[in-house]
Simulated assay, not measured.
Amino acid sequence: MRLLVIRHGETVSSRLGHFTGRADVALSERGREQAGQWREALTDFCRGEEVSVASSPLSRCIETSTAAGMTADVWPDLVEWDLGVLDGLSADDHRRAHPEWNLFVDGPPKNSGERVHEVRERAERVLARVTERGADAVLFTHGQFAKVLVGVVLSLPAEASSRFALGPARGVLFLDRVQGKSLAGWNIAPSPERLWNGLS
Protein backbone atom coordinates (compact mmCIF):
# COMPACT_ATOMS: atom_id res chain seq x y z
CA MET A 1 0.00 0.00 0.00
CA ARG A 2 1.22 3.48 -0.89
CA LEU A 3 0.16 6.64 0.92
CA LEU A 4 0.83 9.95 -0.80
CA VAL A 5 0.19 13.13 1.20
CA ILE A 6 0.16 16.38 -0.81
CA ARG A 7 0.24 19.87 0.65
CA HIS A 8 -1.97 22.42 -1.13
CA GLY A 9 -0.43 24.86 -3.60
CA GLU A 10 0.74 28.36 -2.82
CA THR A 11 -1.63 30.95 -1.38
CA VAL A 12 -0.93 34.64 -0.92
CA SER A 13 -0.67 33.94 2.83
CA SER A 14 1.92 31.20 2.41
CA ARG A 15 3.93 33.34 -0.02
CA LEU A 16 4.04 36.11 2.60
CA GLY A 17 5.03 33.66 5.33
CA HIS A 18 1.88 34.13 7.39
CA PHE A 19 0.38 31.53 9.68
CA THR A 20 -2.82 30.27 8.05
CA GLY A 21 -4.97 27.92 10.06
CA ARG A 22 -8.70 27.66 9.47
CA ALA A 23 -8.94 30.86 7.37
CA ASP A 24 -10.42 29.68 4.07
CA VAL A 25 -8.04 31.33 1.62
CA ALA A 26 -7.85 30.47 -2.07
CA LEU A 27 -4.84 29.39 -4.10
CA SER A 28 -2.82 32.04 -5.83
CA GLU A 29 -2.38 31.81 -9.60
CA ARG A 30 1.02 30.23 -8.99
CA GLY A 31 -0.58 27.79 -6.55
CA ARG A 32 -3.04 26.62 -9.21
CA GLU A 33 -0.16 26.11 -11.63
CA GLN A 34 1.76 24.12 -9.01
CA ALA A 35 -1.25 21.91 -8.33
CA GLY A 36 -1.82 21.31 -12.04
CA GLN A 37 1.68 19.89 -12.36
CA TRP A 38 0.50 16.87 -10.36
CA ARG A 39 -2.12 15.90 -12.95
CA GLU A 40 0.00 13.57 -15.10
CA ALA A 41 1.86 12.06 -12.14
CA LEU A 42 -1.35 11.29 -10.23
CA THR A 43 -3.00 9.79 -13.30
CA ASP A 44 -0.06 7.42 -13.43
CA PHE A 45 -0.10 6.81 -9.66
CA CYS A 46 -3.79 5.86 -9.72
CA ARG A 47 -3.74 3.79 -12.92
CA GLY A 48 -5.24 0.34 -12.53
CA GLU A 49 -5.80 0.69 -8.81
CA GLU A 50 -8.73 1.54 -6.58
CA VAL A 51 -7.17 4.53 -4.87
CA SER A 52 -8.75 6.55 -2.06
CA VAL A 53 -8.53 10.28 -2.75
CA ALA A 54 -9.46 12.64 0.08
CA SER A 55 -9.13 16.33 0.83
CA SER A 56 -9.40 18.80 3.66
CA PRO A 57 -12.68 20.74 3.46
CA LEU A 58 -10.86 24.06 3.01
CA SER A 59 -10.89 25.65 -0.45
CA ARG A 60 -7.14 25.65 -1.00
CA CYS A 61 -6.99 21.85 -0.72
CA ILE A 62 -10.09 21.21 -2.80
CA GLU A 63 -8.72 23.56 -5.48
CA THR A 64 -5.42 21.67 -5.40
CA SER A 65 -7.08 18.28 -5.86
CA THR A 66 -9.27 19.60 -8.68
CA ALA A 67 -6.35 21.24 -10.49
CA ALA A 68 -4.45 17.95 -10.11
CA GLY A 69 -7.30 16.15 -11.91
CA MET A 70 -8.58 14.32 -8.85
CA THR A 71 -12.12 14.02 -7.51
CA ALA A 72 -11.62 13.92 -3.75
CA ASP A 73 -13.89 12.95 -0.90
CA VAL A 74 -13.88 15.52 1.90
CA TRP A 75 -12.46 14.24 5.19
CA PRO A 76 -12.96 16.85 7.96
CA ASP A 77 -10.04 15.40 9.91
CA LEU A 78 -7.63 16.57 7.16
CA VAL A 79 -8.37 20.25 7.94
CA GLU A 80 -5.49 22.50 8.99
CA TRP A 81 -4.55 23.08 12.62
CA ASP A 82 -6.75 25.72 14.24
CA LEU A 83 -3.98 28.21 15.06
CA GLY A 84 -6.13 30.56 17.12
CA VAL A 85 -4.51 33.98 17.65
CA LEU A 86 -1.63 33.06 15.32
CA ASP A 87 -3.82 33.10 12.22
CA GLY A 88 -2.63 35.85 9.87
CA LEU A 89 0.55 36.70 11.82
CA SER A 90 4.04 36.59 10.32
CA ALA A 91 5.51 33.22 11.29
CA ASP A 92 9.10 34.53 11.31
CA ASP A 93 8.20 37.56 13.43
CA HIS A 94 6.39 35.42 16.00
CA ARG A 95 9.24 32.90 16.23
CA ARG A 96 11.82 35.66 16.65
CA ALA A 97 9.76 37.24 19.43
CA HIS A 98 9.24 33.85 21.16
CA PRO A 99 12.38 31.77 20.49
CA GLU A 100 11.52 29.15 23.12
CA TRP A 101 8.04 28.54 21.71
CA ASN A 102 7.34 25.46 19.58
CA LEU A 103 3.91 25.00 17.99
CA PHE A 104 4.21 21.22 18.00
CA VAL A 105 4.93 21.13 21.75
CA ASP A 106 3.19 24.22 23.14
CA GLY A 107 0.31 24.68 20.71
CA PRO A 108 -1.06 28.14 19.81
CA PRO A 109 -0.48 30.81 22.46
CA LYS A 110 -3.01 32.30 24.89
CA ASN A 111 -4.80 28.95 25.11
CA SER A 112 -6.38 29.62 21.71
CA GLY A 113 -7.00 27.28 18.82
CA GLU A 114 -6.40 23.55 18.91
CA ARG A 115 -4.22 21.73 21.43
CA VAL A 116 -1.37 19.50 20.26
CA HIS A 117 -3.03 16.29 21.45
CA GLU A 118 -6.22 17.17 19.56
CA VAL A 119 -4.35 17.57 16.26
CA ARG A 120 -2.48 14.33 16.81
CA GLU A 121 -5.77 12.53 17.55
CA ARG A 122 -7.11 13.74 14.20
CA ALA A 123 -3.97 12.47 12.49
CA GLU A 124 -4.39 9.10 14.20
CA ARG A 125 -7.97 8.88 12.89
CA VAL A 126 -6.79 9.66 9.35
CA LEU A 127 -4.11 6.98 9.54
CA ALA A 128 -6.59 4.44 10.93
CA ARG A 129 -9.05 5.21 8.14
CA VAL A 130 -6.40 4.71 5.45
CA THR A 131 -5.03 1.57 7.09
CA GLU A 132 -8.46 0.02 7.53
CA ARG A 133 -9.20 0.38 3.84
CA GLY A 134 -5.86 -1.20 2.92
CA ALA A 135 -5.54 0.42 -0.52
CA ASP A 136 -3.36 3.16 -1.97
CA ALA A 137 -4.41 6.65 -0.92
CA VAL A 138 -3.78 10.26 -1.91
CA LEU A 139 -4.52 12.89 0.76
CA PHE A 140 -4.64 16.64 0.08
CA THR A 141 -3.99 18.58 3.25
CA HIS A 142 -2.03 21.43 4.85
CA GLY A 143 1.54 22.12 5.92
CA GLN A 144 1.21 22.00 9.70
CA PHE A 145 -1.24 19.10 9.72
CA ALA A 146 0.91 17.14 7.24
CA LYS A 147 3.89 17.45 9.59
CA VAL A 148 1.81 16.13 12.48
CA LEU A 149 0.53 13.28 10.32
CA VAL A 150 4.08 12.31 9.34
CA GLY A 151 5.05 12.21 13.01
CA VAL A 152 2.09 9.99 13.82
CA VAL A 153 2.73 7.62 10.89
CA LEU A 154 6.38 7.22 11.94
CA SER A 155 5.55 7.01 15.70
CA LEU A 156 7.71 10.05 16.46
CA PRO A 157 7.31 12.36 19.47
CA ALA A 158 5.30 15.53 18.88
CA GLU A 159 8.38 17.80 18.91
CA ALA A 160 9.89 15.95 15.94
CA SER A 161 7.22 17.38 13.61
CA SER A 162 8.82 20.82 13.97
CA ARG A 163 11.92 19.48 12.19
CA PHE A 164 10.13 18.92 8.89
CA ALA A 165 9.75 21.51 6.12
CA LEU A 166 7.23 20.92 3.33
CA GLY A 167 6.83 23.26 0.38
CA PRO A 168 3.58 24.22 -1.36
CA ALA A 169 2.21 21.47 -3.64
CA ARG A 170 4.91 19.06 -2.46
CA GLY A 171 4.29 15.47 -1.49
CA VAL A 172 5.25 12.90 1.14
CA LEU A 173 5.24 9.21 0.20
CA PHE A 174 4.94 6.23 2.54
CA LEU A 175 5.22 2.56 1.63
CA ASP A 176 4.04 -0.39 3.70
CA ARG A 177 6.79 -2.62 5.04
CA VAL A 178 6.69 -5.66 7.33
CA GLN A 179 7.44 -3.47 10.36
CA GLY A 180 4.99 -0.73 9.32
CA LYS A 181 5.03 2.29 7.05
CA SER A 182 8.35 3.63 5.78
CA LEU A 183 9.06 7.16 4.58
CA ALA A 184 9.97 6.68 0.92
CA GLY A 185 9.88 10.27 -0.34
CA TRP A 186 9.89 13.74 1.22
CA ASN A 187 9.10 17.13 -0.32
CA ILE A 188 8.40 15.37 -3.65
CA ALA A 189 7.69 17.42 -6.74
CA PRO A 190 5.80 15.66 -9.55
CA SER A 191 8.35 14.06 -11.82
CA PRO A 192 8.18 12.41 -15.26
CA GLU A 193 10.32 9.58 -13.84
CA ARG A 194 7.64 8.72 -11.22
CA LEU A 195 10.40 7.80 -8.80
CA TRP A 196 8.03 6.08 -6.37
CA ASN A 197 7.34 3.29 -8.88
CA GLY A 198 10.84 1.95 -8.32
CA LEU A 199 10.53 1.96 -4.54
CA SER A 200 7.71 -0.57 -4.08
Rank of each mutant, 00 (worst) to 15 (best):
A35F: 07
V53N: 00
S59A: 15
W81K: 06
E63N: 09
E50C: 01
M70W: 00
S65M: 07
S65Y: 10
W75S: 06
P76D: 15
S28P: 11
R39E: 02
V74A: 04
S65A: 15
L78S: 06
A72Q: 05
T64N: 08
R60I: 04
D44F: 00
E29G: 04
S56P: 06
G36H: 04
E33K: 10
A23C: 11
T43I: 02
V74T: 15
P76I: 09
A26M: 06
D24K: 08
S65K: 05
R30Q: 13
E40W: 00
T71M: 11
E50R: 08
A72N: 08
S65I: 07
G84E: 05
A23G: 13
P76V: 08
Q34A: 05
S55K: 08
T64S: 15
P57C: 04
W38I: 02
L42Y: 00
W75V: 10
M70Y: 02
S52Q: 14
S56K: 07
S28E: 13
A68I: 04
E40H: 00
A54I: 12
R60M: 04
R22I: 13
V51A: 08
E29Q: 13
S52N: 04
S28W: 12
S59W: 10
A68K: 03
V53F: 01
G84H: 06
T43D: 00
A68Y: 03
D77F: 09
S65W: 08
W81M: 08
L83R: 06
G88R: 07
W81I: 10
G88K: 09
G36C: 04
S56C: 07
R47F: 01
P76K: 07
T43C: 01
D87W: 10
A26V: 11
A35G: 06
V53M: 01
G31T: 11
L86V: 13
A67R: 14
Q34R: 06
